[in-house]
């Protein structure tokens, strides 16, 4: 054990300060210190993407960086994607409409990856969508309805086929 160090991280728009062990990863910080359990842990070695969050607006794997490294930076988690309490982002709404999830475990990471994609590329092709979620493993959906949801959210598909 080593002495805790202080970190100050803006999470979903709110400044959060805490003392953490240096070895605390960002995802453990979010889950264990802030009780933001929407971000999930799947592999802790940078493959599955379940822990994806936006760091200063760009998606990263929160298992592959330490909270201490993020001091002074801004993090957006799935809990921060909706424009306001009680509302959903267009993408979240499209995930519901297109049945883009089942067990929901990879979903927060998928939403993060796709939120970033649509911010960069409002009209992505199917190939670009698959590339953007290539680092997010899902065992339920076969990805099809996730692709549909992103198309729907980007106005490229009137309604999902289900």
């Amino acid at each position: 054990m080593t002495a805790p160090i202080s970190v100050e991280i803006t999470v979903n728009g709110t400044v959060r300060r805490a003392f953490v062990e240096p070895r605390t990863t960002l995802v453990d910080f979010l889950r264990d210190h802030l009780a933001l359990t929407g971000t999930h842990v799947g592999c802790e070695h940078g493959i599955c993407g379940a822990c994806s969050v936006l760091l200063d607006g760009a998606p990263v794997r929160a298992c592959c960086l330490f909270a201490a490294q993020v001091d002074g930076m801004s993090v957006t988690t799935v809990e921060g994607l909706a424009p306001a309490r009680g509302e959903l982002s267009k993408l979240q709404d499209a995930f519901l409409e297109s049945h883009a999830l089942q067990c929901g475990y990879c979903t927060p990471g998928m939403l993060i990856a796709c939120t970033d994609l649509l911010a960069r590329n409002p009209q992505p092709s199917e190939e670009e969508i698959r590339d953007a979620i290539g680092g997010n493993l899902c065992r339920c959906t076969g990805y099809q309805q996730i692709v549909d949801a992103v198309k729907l959210a980007s106005g490229q598909e009137e309604a999902a086929h289900g």
Binding site: P22, R23, T25, E44, H45, G46, R61, C63, C64, L65, F66, A68, Q69
Partner: peptide, 23 residues
Amino acid sequence: IAGGQSLVPMMAMRLARPSVLVD
């Protein structure tokens, strides 16, 4: 440590165990 995309997983598996990390 900069990106840490290889180092952090190796540390998580305790295949790498630096006692001092310099960001």
